[in-house]
Nucleic acid binder design. Structure first.
Lengths: 222, 222
DNA sequence: ATGGACATGTAATTTGTTACATGATTGC
DNA sequence: GCAATCATGTAACAAATTACATGTCCAT
């Protein structure tokens, strides 16, 4: 179990486990064969991690790498014989692999997925917007999503056939199907929005009651 | 255009616009008929906002309300004749409604949806976990999602028929379909994972190459 | 030699969470 | 009286972003 070689450049004395998911994500990036720089990690995160778990800012990746190194979960070395000397290459340690396996294989609840969908926020406030404008935003979203779908399929093609990539492949496959569903959802919403402006049965404007406060059983996990 | 009445208790002199989406979300909660307390806002966010845009912590809701009041987008008053005097009730101002309409109706890109899916993170690292355990996590996720779907349907039923709620209803309808899709996605992933342990064609372990670094066109919007 | 991709990092700031303290109101 | 829910808020901290500073390497 390789001990941390180079002096930990980050003094934060963090207890093992109890790391935020982002730290595990970065360590996970490191857990696949090969060693890589923070910069490479960022590109990789942009190309696949972000489709199911968001891509941290490059500065945060560097910070996480320092934390991971401080914990002995990763080691870094400055450049190879061929490489530019300014380059710092990270790899996972045995301790890191063990800790990551503990997190990935554990039964503790990692919490529900969190979705932040600014478009839906706008639709939700649609009574304040021009119907046409709103639908234009939805169509833009569909176009963007199609672009992302193409990217996922590329990433999928790149991973195809490589034995060690089977799980990332499943995650990417899930992402592709998810984006397909997202497109269908947006198209259905387009119809809903169209139905609002051209209503078949023009409902009488019944005095809108105050928003009677909702149910009592909703779990407070915000 | 009602000027800010009560002295702004938060000194932050923020430029109009340029607010984070969360601030617009809270202001949006206030934009529907009626006035309400921070506490009520939190419950409402838990019951509907969180399905398409996450529910801020109660302390952050209070903070956002103070900021909104400082900007003149909301006013608060301490209690009514009947209410407990410790209660502070907020409502949106005309300036707030105008600003919100500017954001909701604007054409600026609000950015892509961000999904943080801890379960997928685990699946992605599945090579470090027991296959059975992993599938158990997926099944737990399906169960939880079914519960959330039931909640959305309740919220939908509550909003049904009320004219002023049409857009929130569309957002909620989208959420319901999204959760249905999420269940289907998870079930398909369960199959994928099963296919891994019982492979029809046991592929020869071809020497796993180093992760050849991915494409160059991925937009860096982390 | 210039610009772009590669590469690392710091500082300042914002955003968001948890834990805690306090107290009123309501129903049993 | 007691517990649960309602209600507000502070303090400490953690997470994450942006802006900035610096420099290398490579192709045109």
């Amino acid at each position: 179990m390789a001990v941390p070689r180079s002096a930990p450049r980050s003094p934060s004395p963090q207890r093992p486990d109890e790391l935020p998911p982002t730290a595990w994500a970065v360590l996970g990036l490191l857990s696949f064969p090969g060693e890589r720089t923070g910069y490479e990690l960022k590109k990789w995160a942009d190309a696949s991690l972000r489709f199911f778990y968001w891509s941290p800012a490059i500065s945060q990746i560097y910070a996480e790498l320092r934390r991971l190194e401080g914990l002995g979960y990763a080691t870094s070395r400055r450049s190879g014989p061929e490489e530019p000397r300014t380059k710092r290459t990270y790899s996972i340690t045995e301790a890191g692999r063990a800790a990551l396996a503990g997190w990935a294989g554990g039964a503790e609840d990692v919490g529900p997925p969190v979705l932040k969908h600014p478009l839906l926020l706008r639709v939700w406030l649609g009574h304040l917007a021009e119907p046409d404008e709103l639908r234009a935003r939805v169509r833009e979203h569909i176009a963007r999503t199609r672009g992302e779908l193409a990217q996922v399929r590329e990433a999928l093609a790149r991973a195809d056939g490589v034995e060690a990539w089977s799980h990332p492949q499943i995650a990417l496959g899930w992402s592709a199907r998810r984006l397909e569903a997202e497109i269908g959802l947006a198209e259905a919403m387009l119809d809903d929005l169209a139905g609002l402006t051209a209503p078949s049965s023009p409902t009488e404007n019944t005095a809108p009651a105050a928003p009677s406060q909702p149910l009592e059983d909703s779990p407070t996990h915000g």
